[in-house]
Amino acid sequence: MTPVSSKLYTDDVSLLVVLIDTNPFFWNSVKSNLPFSKFISHVLAFLNSILLVNQQNQVVVLATGHNSCDYVFDSSVAQSQNQRAEHLLQKLEEFVDKDESLCREESVDGQGFSLLSGSLSMALCYIQRVFRSGPLHPHPRILCLHGSPDGPGQYVAIMNSIFSAQRSMVPIDACVIGTQHSAFLQQASYITGGVYLKPQLLDGLFQYLSTVFATDLHSRAFLQLPKPAGVDFRASCFCHKNTIDMGYICSVCLSIFCKHQKKCSTCGSVFGQAQAQDSSTPPNPNPKRKTPMDA
């Protein structure tokens, strides 16, 4: 175990876990705005500034690829100080090569999303290890630098990660560098109390990163950080993938349907009668209506 517990941590020491999106399909599509090399130089400057702000700060970088995820940098592992960037870049290059080789094997049919659920899960495992290291530990947070579109198949896994992060009070910050908003990351930062930001001008990425995401959690309380704009909490139905604001839920598996069905397509339960009518008629004013709501 790393000798983290021997250090004396104050309330402004952070552990920043950065998830970098290395999906080649995404970077290929946005080449004109912000090439990957430029993006990495912004990120490197940002990581260095995090380590400068407080010498006890710790940075861990995970690469979120198209076919795999891996750790590429951990500042707590001993290495010479002035070769941090080289070290990171070398590992990142290895990772991208490996990711690419996995890609060729499987002949992907152009699904452009990256494996955010995997890197989020790994980041949370790492953070749990820091929690276990002793009563004094740096305050962890996760920063997702993400651009690829959301992968619909990852919904359950990402939500599981979000709830686990919420339980262990780890905020998930999100900086979206793609062209469209990410509904997953909007929910992630809303539920865990992190910051969600989609920068207008990607040329100034370093400035966005350093002004919004560099401050430790304790100091955040004193800053005016971007407020979450409307987060869409409406669900989409399983049958037509429409976004609905009223629908039917299977009482056994909680699948969402936009129309009344005879049988649940997910779990195969056969539904009883007339519940739909029951709930749409105004409820009779029975005595249990007056629930004790504390004012």
């Binding site: 909490f233 604001d245 009223m246 629908g247 039917y248 539904f271």
Partner: peptide, 10 residues
């Protein structure tokens, strides 16, 4: 097993 009508408020 039953279908329950639910709303998703904004």
């Amino acid at each position: 097993a039953n279908l329950i009508k639910m709303g998703f408020p904004q």
